[in-house]
Design a protein around this nucleic acid. Structure first.
Length: 220
DNA sequence: GCGTGATCATAA
DNA sequence: TTATGATCACGC
């Protein structure tokens, strides 16, 4: 089962609000799918289920999930202490020289134009099916948040442009970090910023640190 | 392999 | 306990 795309923001929020306080099992029942015992082999399962229920359309394209609304959908796993349990994946880190200079034209900026966060319980002690879904949070980065993200993005992209992508560590970046994003550590992609031109490197992606997403969900 | 959806697992 | 580095699944 898959629902139609919402016509506007209000429709999207109404639909998201129907999930508040319900369990993963209840959503799975609506969608007529089984809940996996563990997420070890189903890491993106909940995110995909939510996309189906809310009518997201972008699928695997590098665009916001609700293209017509310019809104990205993100699930946010919450630990017992009320804080995000994981960092949030945003998008692939492009290595093409042309993608390294303009924050305004970047994938990160486009993905984070407006985000619908769906918090849910992610404690290992709670069976997946019984985890509860929280209130949706519609968020846009404010001036200060965007400034911080842009700073981190620019710093990381400058290193890539200099051919130093392999010197980038996950510990860099205050709110935005760059980490491996691949099938495994043997994956390779072309890095045209190297003098040799045909250099290969591990594919990476941009992620939001939990401290950043925590500030988002706690202020709403 | 690329880009999406993410969480896992272990070193620190 | 936490964050880094690695990994799982899927469509194309």
């Amino acid at each position: 089962m898959k629902y139609q795309a919402p016509a506007n923001k209000q429709e999207l929020m109404q639909r998201a609000n129907t999930l508040t306080g319900t369990t993963v099992q209840q959503l799975a029942n609506k969608m007529e799918v089984d809940v996996p015992e563990s997420l070890v082999h189903a890491k993106g399962w909940f995110g995909n289920l939510l996309e189906q229920y809310l009518g997201a359309e972008a699928a695997s394209a590098p665009e916001p999930d609700f293209i017509n609304l310019g809104i990205e959908l993100k699930t946010i796993p919450i630990a017992e202490n009320g804080k995000p349990k994981e960092s949030t994946y945003i998008c692939v880190a492009q290595l093409e020289p042309a993608a390294l200079s303009s924050w305004e034209d970047s994938l990160v900026k486009h993905k984070l134009t407006e985000v619908l966060w769906i918090p849910f319980e992610a404690s290992k002690t709670i069976p997946v099916a019984l985890r509860r879904i929280g209130s949706p949070i519609l968020w846009k980065p404010d001036f200060e948040q965007e400034r911080q993200l842009k700073n981190d993005w620019q710093e990381l992209c400058d290193l890539i442009a200099l051919g130093d992508v392999d010197k980038i560590s996950s510990s860099m970046g205050t709110y935005l970090q760059m980490r491996p994003k691949a099938a495994n550590a043997s994956s390779l992609t072309i890095d045209k910023n190297q003098p040799g031109s045909n250099a290969l490197t591990l594919p990476r992606g941009f992620y939001l640190r939990p401290s950043f997403t925590h500030s988002i969900i706690s202020s709403n």
